[in-house]
């Protein structure tokens, strides 16, 4: 058997520039879904602080430490991104490796909020959705995750199999926003 070459979810689709906005793929490294075992929320939070220097985020929140991010990912779920989970976390939580499961796209530029206003049924203006906010919601017709990583920068995440649809929807929305000048 020949050597298999790893292919990123958005290979051949990104980067993309429209007007002053750009979309690029994020190589996040390891991604692990953490769910606290029953009644172990506090213990998992402590273990995360001890091992990774970041706590279990509150709903709609993100904790970060260096390259590692803990993104709130829904009911009893947190996605640990950019760090291999420490063994100690397994005592208090259920860990699922999702490193290859998500397409992560970074959207940058002054019109990013307007682009998302066309795709996401959540208010993502800076006043309502400051840096470090995250939401599980719809991106177009897809279930996804939206996180604000900068004043004009977002991470968009959808299932890997939907990368092409995400880029297509994003490109249409970016072009529509850019056309308005």
């Amino acid at each position: 058997m020949g050597n298999l070459v790893a292919k990123s979810p958005c290979k051949g689709l990104l980067p993309l520039s429209v007007g002053a906005m750009s979309a690029s793929e994020v190589e996040t490294g390891a991604m692990t879904m953490l769910s606290p075992r029953k009644g172990q929320d506090g213990a998992l939070d402590e273990a995360m602080r001890a091992v990774h220097g970041l706590g279990y985020p509150a709903p709609s929140g993100v904790e970060s430490a260096g390259e590692a991010r803990a993104i709130w990912f829904g009911h009893s779920s947190v996605l640990l991104v950019g760090a291999e989970p420490g063994q100690r976390l397994e005592e208090h939580g259920v860990l699922v490796d999702q490193s290859d499961a998500w397409a992560v796209v970074r959207l940058d530029g002054p019109g990013a909020e307007d682009v998302l206003a066309r795709l996401v049924p959540v208010d993502v203006r800076l006043c309502a959705f400051p840096v470090g906010s995250t939401a599980r919601s719809k991106i177009g017709h897809m279930s996804g995750s939206v996180t604000r990583v900068g004043e004009a920068s977002f991470w968009l995440m959808v299932f890997r199999s939907m990368a092409e649809t995400l880029v297509h929807d994003l490109k249409s929305a970016m072009e529509a926003v850019a056309a308005r000048g």
Binding site: P59, G74, H75, S77, A135, R136, S143
Partner: peptide
């Protein structure tokens, strides 16, 4: 069911 959101 909050299927397009947090799954609760």
């Amino acid at each position: 069911y909050h299927e397009g959101g947090c799954g609760a």
